[in-house]
Design a protein around this nucleic acid. Structure first.
Lengths: 222, 222
DNA sequence: CGGGTTCGGCCAACGCTGTTGACAACAGCG
DNA sequence: CGCTGTTGTCAACAGCGTTGGCCGAACCCG
């Protein structure tokens, strides 16, 4: 009697395809996200997806838009410093789990709706902090580059290679000839600190720089 | 007499293969760098390359090592601030022209010789600046993440999409509904400033942060 | 109620990718 | 001379994104 399913055996739509795509990405990694696998996850022919998305880039772009929508939904803006910090942390998480987003978004000519909402909020926070228009845009791009770039880079760095890859490199640095590599040998035990600490340091550094620039501008105006 | 070519019609070695690979990357972009094209550039069968490189990642890693070797050769270290700045600018140039390097290097378990030399120099400059061992490593990773991440991100951002893609986005931001997107509309004309300015701002910001941290540590010790 | 149109899933296929294994020609060596 | 290891060639495999044709079901309109 085909209960439930409206009428046809298995109608596809963009939302269920996105669900399947996220499921595939979850279990196969970002390199394992392939149209054929998405089709299999849906129990449908892979090419059926092309009736709902023009190509793979558009599918990935839609995935990114959904995730960024969730980000902006869960994090209302408050004071500029906390707002920017939260946004950067969430952005990093997204790009780190899905490094393919960067390329797909870059290939898409128009920004997606939720990306525009994020841009709106970040620009607003930067102006609220007291930056001039030019500086606000400058730091906006700096933030985007830092968050997306670092996120993607961290992702490709730690999904490749065997686990405990850091230990291995630490040891190989410690074993370098001490005459030509004194610093590598000496600092080998400290290498690869907590990645969150590294990222957070960069974030606070950026926020401090914004504050300093606002202070300097106000001082100059006085 | 088969002048030049030692004896066999076209003997291959790692260096000439690297030359061919760079030639292909130059004219076909980083996505057009394929083993078949490298073979064609050499006038040889594509699979002949596999006699000299285990796989494509090893080939790309060797390309990266050659370029980084050139970087470290041409830029002797001097004062810490200039040394770090030059290194970051050169690193960005490399990653921007060859964003594929990041993934290949990440997949390679061992660092290449010239990457170790660069790590040695950067760590030395950070210690020369006066950072403690822990901070030196922290900023080392911050620098690597910023340079590689931003470089790769800039590369994928501007080789995709049509030219004058920025103008297009600027216009679309300016055309957003002003009630919901006041900041996007107001700042649209300033969007996408000179990418070099954005990157340089980040560099100086990092260098200032290093200097500030050194100053604070010395003050605390007093 | 009937017929035309559109939608959407299926299937076969194209061109491309990285990579492998068998084969053959050549080099150096005893 | 013959043996052995190197290295270029060839055919092939599995996988990828994507396209065009087919066709049944659903919808619209008279």
């Amino acid at each position: 009697m085909t209960a439930g399913k409206t009428r046809r055996p298995s109608r596809l739509d963009r939302e269920s395809i996105l669900d399947a795509a996220f499921a595939v990405a979850e279990e196969a990694g970002h390199r394992g996200l392939t149209m054929r696998r998405v089709g299999a996850e849906l129990g449908a022919d892979p090419t059926a997806v092309y009736r709902h998305f023009r190509n793979k880039d558009e599918l990935i772009t839609a995935m990114a838009d959904r995730l960024f929508g969730g980000v902006i939904e869960h994090y209302p803006d408050g004071p500029w410093r906390e707002g920017l910090r939260n946004g950067m942390l969430m952005g990093r998480r997204v790009y780190r789990r899905h490094p393919g987003f960067a390329e797909a978004l870059a290939a898409t000519p128009d920004d997606t709706p939720n990306l525009e909402r994020i841009a709106e909020r970040v620009l607003g926070l930067l102006r609220k902090a007291g930056l001039t228009d030019g500086d606000a845009v400058l730091f906006y791009h700096l933030i985007v580059n830092y968050v997306a770039g670092t996120g993607v880079f961290e992702a490709v760095a730690d999904d490749a290679g065997e686990p405990s890859w850091q230990d291995r490199t630490r040891r190989s640095y410690a074993a370098l000839p001490p005459d030509r590599f004194p610093n590598c040998v000496a600092l080998a035990p400290h290498m690869y600190p907590d990645p969150n600490l590294v990222f957070d340091t960069g974030v606070e550094l950026l926020l401090d720089a914004i504050e300093a620039r606002v202070g300097r501008a106000q001082e100059g105006r006085r």
